[in-house]
Every structure is written in C-alpha cells, then in structure tokens.
Simulated assay, not measured.
Amino acid sequence: MRFAAIADVHGNRAALKAVLDDISALGIRDIVNLGDCFSGPLEADQTGALLLLLDLKAERTVRGNHDRYLVEKTADQLEASDAHAHRQMSPRHFDWLRKLPFSMIWRDEVFLCHATPKDDNLYWLETVSPQGHVTLRPQDEIEVLAEGIEQSLILCGHSHIARMVSLSDGRLIVNPGSVGQPAYDDDAPFYHKVETGHAMASYAVIEKTGHGWAPLFRNVPYDHMAMSRLAAANGRAEWASALATGRV
C-alpha cells in the first residue's frame, strides 16, 4: 500500500494544486485528507472545486475544527479566516462539509482524524506551555489519546507540524504537515506561534513495507508569493508573512 496524506489546506488553492501535481508525478492515486479545507483569506471556492473533485473518487476526508465552525456557526459568529471562506463557499461546499465524518478507518488499516480521536481542537503530538513554547508532547500523554485505536497507522493534522511518533506497541502516528499554511499564531491554550521557517506546501507519502509503515515527508515549492499578496490584499498581514516566509 502506498498513498499520500494531506492536511490543513486552508483555502490555499495554489499550494493544493502543486501538491496534487507532485502526487500525480509520483504515480500515487490514493489520497487521504485530514481536514481544515477552506478557512483562510485566500481562495476557498477554487480550493473546494479541487477537493470535491478529488473526493468524488472515494470517501476519504475527515472534518477539521475549522470545517466544523463553517457548518455549525452563523456567518456573523465566525472569526476572520472562517468568515472570508464562508463568503466564497457555495451550497455544495457546505453540503460536502456536513457529510464529512469526525474520524474514519480507511482500508481497515489506517485511522484518520483531524486532531485527536475525541477532540478536533487539541494538538495530539505537541503541547503548549504557559510561556508559549510548542514542544513534543510527553509519550505517556500521546499514548493515552491513542487508547482504543487498533489500526497500526494513525494520521492526524491540526498542528501544521510534520512529525511522526512511534508508540510503545509499534503503532505509528503521523502528521503530514500543512499544505496551505506554513505558520500561524493562536491564543489557545496559551498564546503561541507555529512556524515552519519555509514557505513550501507540505504533505506526506506513506508506504507499507515488510518492516512496517514508512512515511516520507515532502515539501513542494509553488508560487507562494501570489498567495501572500492575496492575503495582504484581503487585509491579513499575518497570513501574508506566514505565506511569504513560514514565520509570523
């Protein structure tokens, strides 16, 4: 088995197109999507066109926390990134989001969720200190969150940090990184920044071998400055910086 895992596109059509082209060039046909598809000051409508076409082939997308906000909140309740996406989205985009599962088991071997199995707004592999330091979560805490999952490969997104962690029983958790947002800041649970330090689109190719799962993290260049300029034109300087440099 060989497939690609994408996550956290956040309305960045140009980054998504570059990743899909890279996946195609590798001869990979199967793609799973770990959510947060539209939210951002970019091109939610065009991103949706690509994602819905991709998902027509098989149901293999789970819903992220920002996807949930878009279908659970009214337009006037949304934060800026979600509100921008909401204005661009068509009814078919909302219909698609409503049908997405919180989590799923893909091909009997892979568990998919956006953040953790029970909370779509909690970092699984990272923790944030009161001082705003983002570090690897302690092993015992990671393992507690994985209790009850039988699949040997577990995929999550949400933190935008490409990372993998082996569990004590041999299971593997993989976060493929973010396709469309290489840096951001957040107030919860404490103010912190996530910064990759580069502007490329990130995803993972995962292969099952005779020795177990073998993830390969890939970073794909694209016209990130066009997206940075678009974010700036839409009044989002922090997004413009993140897309241009991978820092905020």
Rank of each mutant, 00 (worst) to 15 (best):
K99N: 05
A183I: 04
H114C: 14
F111D: 03
D21I: 13
S103V: 01
I149R: 03
G246A: 08
V194S: 06
T196C: 13
I142P: 05
D45N: 02
D82A: 15
L100M: 13
V179E: 00
S90A: 14
R98N: 06
R2Q: 07
Y123A: 14
T116M: 04
Q151R: 03
A25V: 11
V220W: 00
R218I: 07
R29T: 15
V205G: 06
L70N: 03
A75K: 12
A75E: 10
R87A: 15
Q131K: 11
M104H: 01
W239E: 09
R60H: 02
R163D: 07
A188L: 07
G40T: 07
L20F: 04
L53T: 10
E72H: 02
C156D: 00
P130C: 12
G40M: 05
L53Y: 01
H86W: 11
T135F: 11
P117D: 13
G132F: 05
S24P: 02
H114V: 11
S228H: 13
Y184H: 02
L136W: 01
T135G: 10
H84N: 10
V165R: 15
V205K: 06
D140H: 13
I142Y: 06
L153A: 04
D120R: 06
A5F: 09
I28F: 05
T74C: 11
L100K: 07
E150N: 03
A146E: 04
H66K: 08
E43L: 12
L78T: 13
V110M: 06
P91V: 15
L42I: 06
A244S: 12
K193I: 15
A58E: 04
D169K: 02
Q46N: 07
Y184D: 01
R247P: 00
V32D: 04
Y184P: 00
A242Q: 04
K118C: 12
P101H: 09
D223E: 06
T135Y: 08
M1H: 04
G177F: 02
D82P: 05
T127H: 05
V32P: 03
P41H: 05
Q151K: 03
G11C: 13
G212S: 00
C156L: 04
W239Q: 09
S103W: 01
S152V: 01
L172N: 04
N65H: 03
H66L: 10
P215D: 03
S202A: 15
C37H: 06
S152I: 01
L70K: 06
S178A: 15
I149K: 03
G212K: 00
W213G: 07
H158I: 13
A4L: 09
T74S: 13
T116E: 07
E126T: 08
A25I: 12
S129C: 11
Q131T: 11
A204T: 08
I149D: 01
W213L: 09
E143Y: 08
C113E: 11
T209F: 02
G177L: 09
L230S: 12
D140A: 15
M104S: 07
A7G: 12
M200W: 09
R87Y: 05
E195L: 13
R92I: 13
P91W: 11
H160Q: 11
V144F: 07
D45V: 07
Q181Y: 02
